[in-house]
Design a protein around this nucleic acid. Structure first.
Length: 280
DNA sequence: AGTATTTGACCCTG
DNA sequence: CAGGGTCAAATACT
């Protein structure tokens, strides 16, 4: 028992060290990239993707070791769009016909059922560079939340209805000067409105670019990382992805496709995660 | 005319 | 019941 524990601990340490080394390599690549011309990126992208995958694999293995005795299946979240039936369908059967008519009339006028998603950000990207994801968003709401000076805007993928794309995002202005916005992503695109020209990490600002990535508690399964030629997945997860960036969007603009994150297609499943991991 | 945004009401969760 | 997320009619834009 004791031996088993120390064995697992050693394995975890090895995985963490490995992950850190790979992350360092990735950092070097990024630094190198920022000092070179972009036409070289084509050759670097496969290498960058490979490093990212290795880092993720390492974290995954570590977290697996940390959670070997947990029943992770319970942590799996279902897609927002199919999780529940309409509220009126869940109502207990009334005992009297009057009640039946009454409740039916009441529910008939109701709007479609929707369920609030859980919100546990899985990662944060703090960046001064301009990133795109090539998707078109449509604003469907705006709220001023408590203790917030600015509006929070709600966007969904334009292809929600024609292709059933479940992707949504929230944009919250969090700072005035310099302007800073936090973008939280929920769900992944399955609309495939993606082209190579839209590949992210397209640095709009010529210098001083910095990227901060971090993962936080309750995890995503597959996050759509568009680092490059990675295929787009159609994960059913609704775990959020956060991006914080400056000088990119206007609360009142239709989102000039400037507030996006860079993601590639994780092949990994993070369902069992319950920890915070910082990449940079 | 078709599409996108605004905005108040509605609805769910904690 | 409050706070936050979504809907959908009204409005603006192209």
């Amino acid at each position: 028992m004791e031996n088993q524990l120390s064995k697992e601990r050693r394995a975890m340490e090895e995985e963490l060290v490995r992950g850190r080394e790979i992350a360092n390599q990735l950092l070097e690549v990024c630094v190198h990239r920022s000092n070179t011309h972009h036409h070289e990126d084509v050759h670097m992208l496969p290498f960058i993707e490979d490093l990212v995958r290795k880092v993720l694999c390492s974290f995954t293995n570590t977290l697996l070791l940390l959670n070997t005795d947990n029943d992770v299946t319970n942590e799996v979240s279902m897609p927002l769009t199919v999780k529940d039936t309409p509220s009126f369908a869940k109502c207990p059967k009334p005992q009297h016909t009057d009640e039946v008519c009454k409740s039916f009339l009441q529910t008939e006028k109701r709007r479609g059922y929707y369920k609030k998603k859980s919100s546990a950000p899985t990662w944060v990207t703090n960046s001064s560079i301009l990133m795109e994801d090539g998707y078109v968003w449509r604003k469907y709401g705006q709220k001023i939340t408590t203790n917030a000076k600015y509006f929070r805007s709600y966007y969904r993928c334009t292809h929600k209805h024609d292709k059933g794309c479940p992707a949504i995002k929230q944009v919250q202005r969090i700072q005035e000067d310099p302007p800073l916005y936090r973008t939280t992503y929920y769900g992944n695109h399955n609309c495939k409105s993606y082209s190579s020209s839209d590949i992210i990490m397209e640095s709009a600002s010529p210098s001083g670019s910095s990227v901060f990535l971090s993962f936080s508690n309750t995890l995503p399964t597959k996050q759509q990382y568009q680092l490059q030629s990675s295929s787009l997945s159609s994960s059913t997860k609704q775990e959020p992805v956060e991006v914080i960036q400056g000088e990119l969007i206007d609360d009142h603009s239709p989102l000039a496709s400037s507030d996006y994150l860079l993601l590639c297609d994780y092949e990994l499943d993070f369902n069992y995660m319950g920890h915070v991991t910082t990449l940079f």
